[in-house]
Write a protein that binds this DNA or RNA. Structure first.
Lengths: 124, 124
DNA sequence: CAAATGTGTATATCTGATATATACACTATA
DNA sequence: TATAGTGTATATATCAGATATACACATTTG
């Protein structure tokens, strides 16, 4: 479980954890039944509070990605990757929508956005 | 000066004001030397506090878009629209970048993003 | 099987950003 | 010069993010 958090990011720490756990599930790095690091262990590793890791795990549990048991630990639930794909697609769609609004305000043509898209998607 | 704010939005009120003033400058609705509504008048119209309108105007002043004079009012400064265009382009670029990250996580191909872009940009 | 250790959980609290009420200071004008 | 309109400053309220500490349960180990 490689998880990295950034204090400079404006994204809350617990959201960063949630995102990265989802990524690891999507990549196959985490499979059904796999144990997540304990809230304490993760908190210690990231030098943050247990309450914050708990909050992240709570959100993951609420969204059906993991399951937690008092005294035992937290585990990955059976996952439908297609569901995750749809979630990421929806997020991308929303971001592109906002990008289009900004572009229109600036008088930026759609063709310019297509170029940007190719450059950014390709150039990683 | 038509300004509309949404309480349900997660964007702060003062940021909503800032954005919309920039939009009106970009659209030519507000020109150099034009007087903005007084902080009090705008606050009353939007049913918000003067402090909030002041904060919005402060940000606009800090970014060089307007100028405020105690006892006189707030006025639009000379504007370089190209500067605003660049700002919007930069914002769009950043959004597209994040969208690409999400898409990659979901295994969404770049071609699908191009389709989305056309649909969203066109379909307003 | 009881003690110890490791797990998740709950309560009260701190901090920073957003928004506010109220009072103050300056300018124009009637 | 009084008054009404402008921007400004100080102290306060509220909410989300993050926390410390103490609690409850499960597993391991002597």
């Amino acid at each position: 479980m490689d998880i990295v958090i950034s204090n400079s990011s404006n994204e809350p720490i617990y959201e960063q954890i949630v995102s990265q756990v989802k990524e690891q599930i999507m990549s196959g790095n985490l499979k059904e039944g796999d144990a997540l690091p304990s809230m304490r262990a993760l908190a210690q590793a990231l030098r943050i509070s247990v309450i914050t890791t708990k909050r992240a795990y709570e959100e993951l549990e609420r969204d059906g990605f993991i399951e937690s048991f008092t005294g035992r630990g937290s585990f990955v639930k059976a996952q439908n990757k297609e569901l995750l794909r749809e979630e990421y697609l929806r997020q991308a769609e929303e971001l592109i929508s906002t990008a289009c609004e900004k572009a229109k305000l600036g008088g930026v043509d759609v063709s310019e956005l297509h170029e940007l898209l190719d450059i950014i998607y390709g150039g990683e």
